[in-house]
Design a binder for these strands. Structure first.
Lengths: 126, 126
DNA sequence: CTAAAACCTCGAGTGCACTCTAAGTCAAGC
DNA sequence: GCTTGACTTAGAGTGCACTCGAGGTTTTAG
């Protein structure tokens, strides 16, 4: 059984997502959260599993170079509800194309680096 | 036959490399060039084919997120001559590992995005 | 010869994404 | 009950990589 509504502190979320607590607060201020982060009987943030899931996906978007402004756009759409699904789909599809292009360029660059390495390796063993 | 020593203006190099003229001057100031860029009977820069080849490789390093400071390190080594080959090889090998990791992360992120897209696509057609 | 376009240097400005600081509040262990 | 460490906010600071602007010179086309 999964714990029904486990609450996580900011440092626990930081650890799980690889982001710093500073960055988590910054993202929240920037309007990137899907829902307001719950405060646990105090002023301290208490993240839900859903929050962590979203933050994890968010970092997937960020790590593929989607600017924060566009992550916010996506979050804004998601907050507006089900009927923005087509827009979100389109945003993701556009981004997908960019990611595929990035992958191709990175692979080409890796090939160039590998080529150079092989030239150097040859020279040092010779 | 290849033209023996074609001279290119900064805007021609900009066009060929995809960098702006501003960026080319900036890179030069930052010490990233292998050799001083020749000036053609005037104050204007005249790039050689070798320069362009290096700039192209340099952009491969940059596009795989090698910081400018490390590109400079590499260029500094290259300028010091043949006997820095081992250091350059090591730098490239270290970077290669980082690039492979980036590729893996990007592929994982692409998979996550694709998964989300498939959920959305299902919902919009349903 | 002249006008427009391309180039030059130096230094300042920009945008992005954090990252940190200060001054305080809250929670957990002893 | 007190101390220690984690948390809070608001706002300032940082680092990186460009990017631009001003003011001037050089090249090129007519």
């Amino acid at each position: 059984m999964t714990p029904p509504d486990e609450q996580l502190s900011i440092s626990e979320v930081a650890e799980r997502t690889g982001l710093s607590a500073h960055t988590l607060r910054y993202y929240e201020r920037a309007g990137l959260m899907l829902a307001p982060i719950h405060r646990a009987a105090s002023t301290h943030r208490a993240y839900s599993a859903r929050d962590v899931t979203w933050i994890t996906f968010l970092t997937r978007l960020r790590s593929t170079a989607l600017p924060i402004a566009q992550v916010k756009e996506y979050a804004d759409l998601a907050r507006r509800g089900e009927d923005t699904t087509p827009e979100r789909l389109e945003l993701l599809q556009r981004h997908r194309i960019a990611v595929v292009a990035q992958l191709a360029e990175m692979q080409a660059s890796l090939a160039a680096i590998d080529h150079k390495i092989s030239l150097y390796a040859e020279r040092t063993t010779a």
